[in-house]
């Protein structure tokens, strides 16, 4: 590339890369820098005092800071694992149902499923908090009609996180179903015809053709589902405030509590950096597993 071409390429790329640097890299680097400082979020950066890795030692210590952070990390991991484990298979199953041409109503079903994704979380939270009400909620009343006893839903530490997962699945599965349908449309019909001629039944066709060819779609869906789940905030802030007994205290909510309510900016930044590292590791592992599966 000639010098003039290189200069014009730099000139054309500069606005975009400049914006990325200002709005993405600077806050990220600032958060990493703050994670090594003792700093109140209500004061200027000039008041930050370097404390080395103390914030990271504190968030993994046996003090209340460490116990609460580790519990939030476990809650976030469980929430993410459960959400992804339910959403992905369900979205493929619903995608097959929507995509099939044997029975009518596929487009209508897809619209209904996707509509939950478009409902604002504040409305979802208001409705679901009432649905989950242990004594007067419609869910328990409906369960009662079929002889199932009262469930505690959000009112018990043993069921609260699962209840938030169910809410998340309900809201997100339509979006991932649309992704699955997009993937299914890319599978050549000829492969199914050939498999039928070879005598493959529907189950065999699903596991030997559909699922392998949906690999890239599922990988993309898994990455998005993990990121969405790790960033869960609204249902916790609006419905449970992390309770009861911190059972739904996920990391984003906990970081907000520490970094903003308590103004402990250094600790909050250390938690945010740890969350970012955990997310990077999880996504990298996912890609590694996917590559390995492709090779075998």
């Amino acid at each position: 590339m000639q010098l003039s071409q290189r200069r014009s390429a730099i000139a054309m790329l500069a606005p975009a890369t400049g914006l990325i640097a200002v709005f993405i890299m600077v806050p990220m680097l600032l958060t990493i820098w703050l994670s090594f400082q003792n700093w109140s979020t209500q004061t200027g950066f000039s008041t930050a005092r370097f404390v080395g890795v103390q914030n990271f030692l504190d968030i993994f210590s046996q003090t209340t800071i460490g116990r609460d952070f580790k519990a939030a990390l476990v809650n976030t991991s469980l929430y993410t694992a459960a959400s992804v484990a339910i959403i992905l298979p369900l979205s493929v199953a619903l995608g097959l149902l929507v995509h099939q041409k044997v029975a009518p109503g596929g487009v209508f079903l897809r619209t209904v499923l996707f509509s939950t994704y478009m409902v604002p979380m504040i409305a979802v939270a208001l409705v679901w908090s009432k649905l989950y009400s242990p004594t007067e909620g419609p869910l328990n009343q409906m369960l009662g009609w079929i002889g199932i006893g009262r469930q505690t839903w959000l009112s018990s530490p043993s069921t609260a996180l699962v209840s938030i997962v169910i809410l998340n699945v309900w809201q997100q599965v339509g979006y991932f179903t649309v992704l699955a349908v997009a993937g299914l449309t890319q599978v050549p019909e000829a492969l199914y015809e050939a498999a039928k001629l070879d005598g493959a039944n529907p189950v065999q066709r699903f596991f030997t053709i559909t699922l392998p060819l949906l690999g890239n779609t599922l990988l993309f869906s898994a990455v998005i589902a993990i990121i969405n789940a790790v960033q869960v905030f609204e249902p916790v802030a609006l419905i449970t405030q992390g309770g009861p007994v911190n059972a739904t205290n996920v990391l984003t909510y906990h970081i907000r509590r520490v970094g903003i309510e308590r103004a402990q900016g250094g600790l909050g930044s250390a938690m945010a950096v740890t969350l970012m590292l955990a997310l990077i590791v999880a996504i990298a592992l996912l890609f590694a597993v996917s590559r390995r599966a492709d090779r075998t």
Binding site: S129, T135, T240
Partner: peptide
């Protein structure tokens, strides 16, 4: 304790149960 939950508006089941 299952009748004791509060929400962000300091209402919720604990209030509903007393009111009802």
């Amino acid at each position: 304790p299952a009748m004791a939950t509060a929400d962000a508006n300091t209402t919720g089941p604990f209030l509903d149960n007393f009111v009802s």
